[in-house]
Amino acid sequence: MLTLRQLRFLTAVAETLNFSRAAEMCFVTQPTLSAGIKELEDRVGVQLVERTRRSVMLTPLGKDIAARARRLLLDAAEIETLARAHQNPLEGDLKLGSIPTIGPYLLPRTLPAIRKAFPDLRVYLREEMTESLIDGLNAGRLDLILIALPFETGALDILPLFEDGYQLASPADWPTPQDAKTLTQSGQLMLLEKGHCLQRHALEAYPGRIVSAEDSFAATSLTTLIAMVSEGLGVTLLPNLAVSAGVVGSSDVRLTPLPDACPRRVVLAWRPGSARQELFKKLGNLLQRESRSSSGTPRASP
């Protein structure tokens, strides 16, 4: 029969298109990996990998089998996780991913409570864009992700945490803004670069009332946006979660609440049927509790 080891070798080659790097990923020597791929090809009776001195590529069938192999390996990992979870679901390693506009402003406040409630749980944090987090979750690279909706999540299980509104940040020496029309009257709207869900959420919050993403300044972090605002270069939208966490600091900006902006919905997501879903729900309760205890944090999601 096919072995999980052979399938892992194939998926590693598919990911790297390099036998040397694939062997490193699998913690084996390159001859061992090559032999495993050859055994797999002999077993199925067709060539899966085309290899020359300059390149490595999978055949069309090889790509199809590699995709199915990833699902099999993920299921096998879930079996191991299920067994460990049955022994003690509240201990072990947890790979938690978060988007940059939530993680730094919520998780540091919550981690002490998590450590106290689950002393045998080791949480490893990863900060990425939403699309990358979802891909990592589906591939088994992550166990749990903290993201904001609206965003297409497919078949993932979703636990709503709270709603997060916005505030308008403008230079302190500009006239006090009155409402959302200021977004088109006060100068250039500066947003995060494409790929950040906050950019899309901000544009959706005021459809037709702000400049297009192509015409706006794009930054890589909220800290950069705040620095640009304090220099009088424009205005930006900041999530309440970040504001309540002190992201503005001593920067010379004025904050104006925007109660009519459609809030983003902060959620936890995990693979359906995960053996650790009870743990994930407990973690969600801790995150909700922390969001409610912080001043200025948004409404709990229904």
Rank of each mutant, 00 (worst) to 15 (best):
Q178K: 14
D157V: 02
Y166V: 01
R264H: 07
F280V: 05
T184Y: 10
Q277H: 12
L279T: 01
D164W: 03
L268E: 05
T256L: 10
P150S: 09
G195W: 05
R200V: 11
F162Q: 04
P239W: 05
H201Q: 15
K181L: 10
L268T: 03
A202R: 09
V229I: 11
M190E: 02
G234F: 05
L168F: 02
K181E: 14
Q199T: 11
P257E: 03
I158G: 04
D252A: 03
E214T: 12
T176K: 12
P150I: 00
G165F: 07
P257Q: 08
F217P: 00
Y166Q: 05
V229T: 14
L198K: 10
T223S: 15
A218I: 01
E204S: 13
S250M: 04
D260P: 00
R271D: 01
P160T: 04
D215M: 12
E204F: 01
P150C: 10
G165C: 04
I226W: 04
A155F: 08
H196T: 07
L258A: 11
L156S: 06
L192R: 06
G208M: 03
W174V: 02
P175G: 10
A245E: 12
H196D: 13
P239N: 13
A172Q: 07
S221I: 01
S274H: 14
G187A: 13
G273Q: 12
G249N: 07
G284A: 08
I226T: 10
A172T: 00
R276V: 03
S216I: 06
S250N: 13
A245W: 11
A245H: 13
E193C: 06
R276Y: 11
K281E: 14
P272W: 09
G154D: 10
L203G: 09
D260Y: 00
L156F: 05
L241S: 15
D260F: 00
P150N: 10
L189F: 13
T224S: 13
Y206W: 15
A218M: 11
Q185A: 15
Q277N: 09
Y166H: 07
T176R: 12
C262N: 14
I158C: 07
L241I: 15
M190W: 02
P272N: 05
P207C: 06
R209M: 14
R271N: 10
Q178C: 01
K181N: 12
E278S: 13
E231F: 02
Q167G: 02
A205I: 00
V235W: 06
T223F: 02
A213Y: 09
G273A: 12
A202F: 12
V229H: 08
E204V: 00
G154L: 09
L255Q: 10
Q178G: 06
T153L: 08
A275T: 03
L156H: 03
P207D: 09
T182A: 15
P272S: 06
L161N: 05
S212W: 11
T184V: 03
A213E: 15
L168K: 02
A180G: 01
F162W: 14
D173M: 02
P207A: 08
G246D: 08
A169K: 04
V266L: 12
A245V: 08
M190T: 00
S230C: 02
S186G: 02
D252M: 01
L156R: 03
D164L: 04
A202N: 13
A261P: 01
A219K: 07
G165A: 10
G246L: 08
V266F: 05
G234D: 07
P207H: 05
A169T: 05
P150F: 07
L183K: 06
M190P: 01
P207W: 10
A261D: 04
P263T: 07
S251M: 03
